[in-house]
């Protein structure tokens, strides 16, 4: 049987007041730091709570911007090259379908998923979860499960990696042909910056807390 400590330990508190570090299992009484501050696990230094001012509204705005940019970036040409009077331009879809023959088609699907589909799904999930919370309504159905999924998708949404990949590709072909940037390239660049900001604003603990509190 597990030995239950009482008295001076954290266990004197109700369970919902406690927080366990997901990285090292250290147990704390959750104390929300002032806005802009961070509560850090003092054993492994994982950031546990980091509330930001008006974070919900900002995240919704940024997420909407990302949605529009991704959709636009899919349809506009991305990069174009010219050499000896011949030219070609590629959109995001062209890039994903570049792997088209045989088993390479699988890689094409994977690429499409990682640079377009998963980032889009993740943004939609975050919008769905946060919109009612920000406007002080009861969470929409399945919000908790969907938010968990959005967090699990995070490492697989690789739009920003793709954008850096573009820069590397440009360097590689620069001696082969002349390169031009399509409108989608600039949209994607903006997108990368927004994605980085967005993840920085999202304090998952605060979201979980607000999904937990019942509202009328």
């Amino acid at each position: 049987m597990t030995h239950v400590h009482t008295g001076t330990t954290a266990l004197g508190r109700p369970l919902e007041d406690l927080i366990a570090c997901p990285s090292c299992d250290a147990l704390y009484v959750a104390r929300v730091p002032e806005t802009g501050g961070r509560a850090v696990c003092d054993r492994c230094h994982t950031v546990l709570i980091a509330p930001k001012r008006r974070a919900g509204l900002r995240i919704i705005a940024l997420t909407l911007a990302v949605l529009i940019l991704v959709i636009a970036a899919v349809f506009f040409p991305f990069l174009e090259i010219h050499r000896l009077g011949l030219g070609n331009r590629a959109s995001l879809i062209d890039t994903a379908t570049a792997f088209s023959s045989g088993p390479m088609a699988l890689l094409g699907l994977g690429t499409l998923a990682m640079i377009v589909v998963l980032p889009l799904i993740r943004m939609l999930l975050i919008l769905y979860v946060l919109t009612p919370v920000v406007f002080d309504r009861a969470p929409w159905p399945q919000a908790r499960r969907l938010f968990r999924w959005s967090q699990q998708l995070k490492p697989w949404a690789m739009a920003e990696i793709f954008a850096i990949g573009c820069a590397v590709a440009l360097v590689k072909v620069s001696d082969l042909a002349q390169i031009g940037f399509g409108p989608a390239f600039w949209m994607f660049s903006v997108l990368v910056v927004i994605v980085l900001f967005n993840d920085n604003y999202l304090c998952t603990w605060s979201v979980w807390k607000s999904l937990e509190t019942p509202r009328d």
């Binding site: 990069l79 000896l84 011949l86 590629a90 890039t95 792997f99 990949g165 590709a169 590689k172 042909a177």
Partner: peptide
Amino acid sequence: AILSALVQL
């Protein structure tokens, strides 16, 4: 992927 899509001259 980018190179294969783009460099098709």
